[in-house]
């Protein structure tokens, strides 16, 4: 199976490249390169989350930015309360990443359970639209909710802490994000190989047949949707710490669009697709954003050409099509 071998090689290159370039930058004294790669890792993590719903389950969620944003707000709100000693609904603040991460995941998961319970009654284009509408709802709420800054957002004055690491140093924050990304990719692989994952993919291809064997497609899809949102929420918490800022802008519908862009650019449902996609998207922004104010035009053209002529994204382009079954 030469295709499989090429994909393994590509995955290894992506995983190691994502680690080695920042490491080199660390020795060369280029902190900004590390920051860029941290961003890539975080966007990739968010997209790995979406890839479970979209790639495995075929659920085109056009509102995943909401979970990204909610994760960010958990980090922001917890940090603010840890800073000023106030409480959130009686819960004290925290500035420990080890506490914030699970809370961010739970918050995103709970929200996804509610949104998913409504949205999964529909399918196809209705599902795309209703997830977008729910996202808009939360977005407008965040903008007009004054307690945590509304549209101004919520600054995090000191990054949340991790035991034994100074997270203010770019390299330390990067390595945390990289490890979490690798864990999430591992989890994605496990899910894909599990009975749960098999059921999920079977539902995508033929829901009626799955229902006929006595499995509830709704339950499986909802579970996948929640897991997917939890991972994206975790990425949101990391993003807030990277930019030291939580903002409703992270929930804007264009952000949902960008998460989808990352997945399709990389290769839908592919293990390392999100990494490749995030690298290209962030790289494009960093390199061309500095050259021309019209960089969005070029980004649009690249995306368009990818959809039209490079189906399956970067991973497919290099490693060939995936064999199903």
């Amino acid at each position: 199976m030469p295709d499989k071998r090429r994909e393994y090689a590509l995955n290894a290159v992506l995983a190691l490249g994502l680690l080695l370039v920042p490491l080199w930058a660390y020795w060369a004294g280029s902190p900004f390169t590390i920051t860029v790669f941290t961003r890539i890792a975080i966007f990739a993590l968010a997209a790995v989350g979406l890839n479970i719903a979209l790639g495995l389950g075929g659920m085109v969620s056009f509102g995943h930015a909401v979970y990204f944003g909610v994760g960010g707000y958990v980090a922001g709100i917890a940090a603010q309360h840890a800073f000023n000693g106030e409480t959130f609904l009686g819960i004290a603040g925290a500035n420990q990443m080890l506490i914030i991460w699970p809370v961010a995941m739970i918050a995103a998961g709970l929200l996804a359970a509610v949104i998913g319970a409504f949205s999964l009654r529909t399918s196809g284009i209705f599902f795309i639209m209703i997830t977008l509408a729910f996202a808009q709802m939360v977005y407008y709420f965040a903008i007009s909710w004054p307690t945590y800054g509304g549209e101004d957002g919520l600054p995090i004055y000191v990054r949340n802490t991790f035991p034994g690491l100074n997270t203010m140093r770019p390299w330390n924050l990067f390595i945390l994000c990289w490890c979490l990304l690798m864990l999430a990719i591992g989890a994605f692989a496990l899910i894909r190989a599990s009975r749960f994952g098999a059921a999920l993919m079977a539902i995508r291809q033929n829901p009626d047949r799955v229902a006929a064997v006595g499995i509830s497609p709704f339950g499986i899809k909802l579970a996948a949707f929640v897991i997917s949102a939890m991972i994206t929420g975790l990425a949101g918490a990391l993003m807030a710490d990277l930019s030291r800022f939580a903002s409703p802008a992270a929930m804007a519908w264009t952000m949902s669009g960008e998460l989808i862009v990352i997945i399709i650019l990389g290769g839908t449902g592919r293990l390392f697709g999100p990494v490749a996609g995030a690298a290209v998207l962030v790289g494009f922004e960093v390199i061309f954003g500095g050259m021309t104010e019209h960089w969005r035009l070029w980004l649009g053209l690249v995306l368009l050409l990818t959809v039209l002529f490079a189906r399956g994204g970067i991973v497919t382009l290099i490693a060939g099509r995936e064999r199903l079954g």
Partner: peptide, 13 residues
């Protein structure tokens, strides 16, 4: 991709 990323990083450096 990796080549580009390296090139980009060295330009930045």
């Amino acid at each position: 991709f990796r080549k580009n990323a390296l090139a980009c990083a060295s330009v930045l450096a």
